[in-house]
Every structure is written in structure tokens, then in C-alpha cells.
Simulated scan of single mutants.
Amino acid sequence: MTREYVNSVCAALPGAELSDPWGGAHDAWKVGGKMFACVGSVGDGVSVKTLDIETAQMLIDAGIGTKAPYFHRSWVRLPWETEADEMQHRLITSYDIVRASLTKKIQASLPPRS
């Protein structure tokens, strides 16, 4: 997988926005102002949010991801070698987790999730 693949999956999600909050070529994907995916400037993979620390640890133990540097323990880094369907699933799941955590008012302002 590549940065371009991650960006294409994320761009297709309703209300998703790309930003570079730290400068230096970071791709931070947000929904309602909250980040759900990030490709760092090194570009060795994408970091995504999981449901909880236990889920992140399970993905790490299974060899699917690694600890996401600089992020909470509920985030994992998926390397570019991750299968396309797994990468897409984790990006969409991260988006759904973050979107569900937004206030009802912000959720109502976003395009519907089909």
C-alpha cells in the first residue's frame, strides 16, 4: 500500500478532511476536527485508531500492526505491506470510531454515512 492508497480511501469517507497540522508532509485525516488516520513525514505506514488498548494490543500481537509512535496506546501503525482489504477495513473502522465519538451536533452537521 502507499500514501496515495490511504488518501484515496480516506477521501471517499463523508466529511473527511486532509490536513498537515505539524508541517513537514504529514497527512492527517480528520472527521469533525478529530484525527482518525495519519501518515507521518517518514511515510513508513499509516497510524489508525482502534476501539481500545486491548484491540490495539491484539493487532500488534497478531503482527498486523505495531505501536504507533507519539500516539495513545489505542492507536496502531499499519505498515505499507498490509493487505489492501485489511488496510481499508482499519481506516474505515478508525473513521467510524472517531465519528461516533463526536458530539451529536457535529455528527448532524456531517454528510450521512451510507
Rank of each mutant, 00 (worst) to 15 (best):
V39R: 01
A108S: 12
P111R: 07
A84S: 11
S8H: 08
K49N: 11
D61W: 03
P79R: 03
L78E: 00
M1R: 10
A28H: 05
I64P: 00
S114V: 06
T50A: 14
A25Q: 08
R77G: 04
L13H: 12
G63A: 02
C10I: 08
R77A: 05
I92M: 08
L51V: 09
A100G: 12
S74P: 01
L110M: 10
N7H: 08
A16I: 03
A16R: 09
A100R: 08
Y70L: 13
S8Y: 01
L59P: 09
R73N: 11
A28W: 05
A62V: 04
E86L: 12
N7A: 14
P69F: 11
R90C: 04
T66M: 06
A56L: 15
S101E: 14
P21R: 12
V76T: 06
V76G: 02
V42H: 15
V31W: 09
A37L: 11
G43F: 14
S114I: 06
V42W: 11
E4S: 09
G33S: 03
G24S: 12
G23K: 12
Y5D: 07
L59A: 09
S8W: 02
D52L: 04
M1Q: 11
G24Q: 13
S41H: 10
V42C: 10
F36D: 15
T50L: 08
M87W: 03
T55E: 12
G45H: 06
C10L: 10
A25F: 03
T66N: 11
A56W: 07
G33I: 01
L18P: 09
L59W: 12
E83Y: 03
P79T: 02
L51T: 14
I64D: 07
R3A: 15
V6T: 10
L18S: 06
G32K: 02
G63F: 00
M87S: 09
V6W: 01
M35C: 08
M1H: 13
V39E: 02
L59H: 12
D96R: 14
I92S: 02
H26P: 00
A16C: 13
M35P: 14
A28T: 14
F71H: 11
L78N: 03
E54N: 14
A108D: 10
E81Y: 05
R99E: 06
S8M: 12
M58C: 11
A62D: 15
D61P: 04
V46A: 03
V76S: 01
W29H: 15
A11M: 07
D27A: 15
R73L: 00
G40F: 02
L102W: 04
P69G: 10
E81K: 13
I106M: 04
K67T: 12
G40T: 10
R73K: 13
T55Y: 06
V46D: 00
